[in-house]
Amino acid sequence: MKNYSEQTALPDMETFTSEFLAQSQLTDELVVVGTARYKKTLAFIKYALLLDAIDEGWLYEQQGWMFNQLHRYREAVEAFDRARRLGYANDGWLYKQKSYALNKLERNEEALEAGERARKLGYVNEE
């Protein structure tokens, strides 16, 4: 954990709140309710990363999943890689989600490798 002098300055609460509310404005609730929720969650994850209060690896793993839900696959892969480097290298779910994002990016060989890694780690698809 960073000491106080090394911590990233936190955004002013008014700015954070206005950015957060701007992301949650909906025009067609039936189409974007899920999207709005994912975007809100991403805003909270971003803020939690600034606070350095929760396991960063877990936050990046969740961020990757949110990016997958928003079809932002490149960002998802980056988030999963960060989570892996922060201690989640043996998480089958992470590799399954990363495989999904890589598949969507048509990076088929990498997707197969990630899927195989998930299987070897004992990940069982819940569906």
Rank of each mutant, 00 (worst) to 15 (best):
L112G: 13
K39N: 07
A53N: 11
Y47T: 02
E61V: 04
V33D: 07
V77M: 06
L49E: 03
E110N: 03
A53L: 10
G87C: 11
E110H: 07
A101V: 02
A89C: 05
E106T: 10
S5V: 06
N125T: 08
S5N: 08
Q7Y: 07
F20H: 10
T15H: 09
D81T: 09
S99V: 02
V33E: 15
N103F: 10
T35Y: 09
P11I: 00
V31M: 13
R117H: 09
E61H: 15
S99G: 08
L70M: 07
F20V: 04
R85Y: 09
R37P: 00
R82N: 14
L42K: 01
L30I: 03
Y95H: 13
A36E: 03
A53F: 07
R74G: 14
D91R: 12
Y88Q: 13
F80L: 07
W58Y: 15
M1G: 15
E29T: 02
L112N: 15
A76T: 02
H71A: 15
D12G: 00
Q97W: 08
D81M: 11
E109M: 03
W58D: 10
L121W: 05
G64L: 06
Y4F: 13
L112R: 14
L121H: 08
T27K: 15
L10H: 01
S24L: 08
A89R: 12
R72T: 08
L94E: 03
N68D: 05
E29W: 09
E113P: 00
N125P: 05
L50F: 12
T41V: 08
T27G: 12
L51A: 09
V31I: 12
